[in-house]
Amino acid sequence: MMLRLVKNKVAPAAALVGMIAGGLTISHAAGSYDFDYEMKYPHWHFEGPFGTYDRAAMQRGYQIYREVCAACHGLEHVSFRHLGDKGGPYYDENYPDPNSNPYVKAFAADWLIQDIDSETGDTIERQGTPADKFPPIYPNDAAAAGSNGGAIPPDLSVMVSARGGGADYLYNLLIAYDEPKPEKMVISPGTYFNPVMDGGAIAMAAPLIDDIVEYADGTPATVDQMAADVTEFLAWTADPKMEARKNTGLMTMIYLTILAVLMWFSYRRVWRNVEH
C-alpha cells in the first residue's frame, strides 16, 4: 500500500519539482565574469513574495535618471503619468488619477516635448503633460550613434529585465568602474574597462561620481547609494505592476490552497467505498 502511495502520488509530485528546478537553472545563465571582480548582492526592497518598491529610493532614482542617465538614455515605454500610478514612485492616495498629481504634473512640465502646432502645422516644442511619454533623447538612431562614438545608448525602460542578472547586474555594472584593469587587457579607444560588462569593455564612461547630484532628501550621494537608487527606479520601470501582481498572487495562492484542500476531501468522500 505504502509503495503504491509512493508510486501514485509522490512520484508525479517529484517529477513536477524536478522539471521546475530544471527550468529555473536553464533561465539563470547570467553573463560570464572572467575577471577577479566579486559580484555584490545587496538586499532589494522588492525581493521575495511580499517585497515592494522602496518609494524614497525610487524617487531618488528618478532624480538620478533625470539628471544623469537622461543625458543619453531614453525611457520610451514609460509615460509621466505612470510615475503617479499605484505602485509607482510618486503615487499619492489623494490623487488616484495620476494626471492630477501635482508632482507628476511638475515633473512632466520639466521636459520639452516635440510636437506639431495644430493651427499652423509648424514643429514646436512644448512643456510635457502627464499623458506624454518620456521623450526620445535623440531624433533618430543615426544621431544617437553619431553623438556616442558609434554606440547607440540603449533604452532603459526594460533594462533590468533585459539582462540575465537583473537588478544585481545593473547595480554592479554601475559600481565596478573603479576596478583595476588586468594588465594584459587592451581597451580600444572610446571604450572603458568594466569587469561586469560581457567582455570587460563598455562604451559608456563611468556615469556616477560622488556628489554628482544633490539629493532632495539630503541622503549622501555616494556612487554606491546612487547606483542602488537608480536600479530601484529602473526595476520599477521594467515591472511597474509588480506590487499589484504580488498582491493578487497572494490571494490567488490562498484561494487555490483552500480549494485544493476541499477538492482533496471531496475526492476522499466520493471514493470512500472504492478501493483503488
Binding site: 527550468g23 529555473l24 533561465s27 513574495p49 529585465s161 539582462r163 504580488k246 498572487g249 487555490l256
Partner: peptide, 14 residues
Amino acid sequence: AFFIFYQPDALGHS
C-alpha cells in the same frame, strides 16, 4: 499561479 505571480520571467529568456 506561482510562476505567473512570482516568477513570470523565469521560463523565458532575458
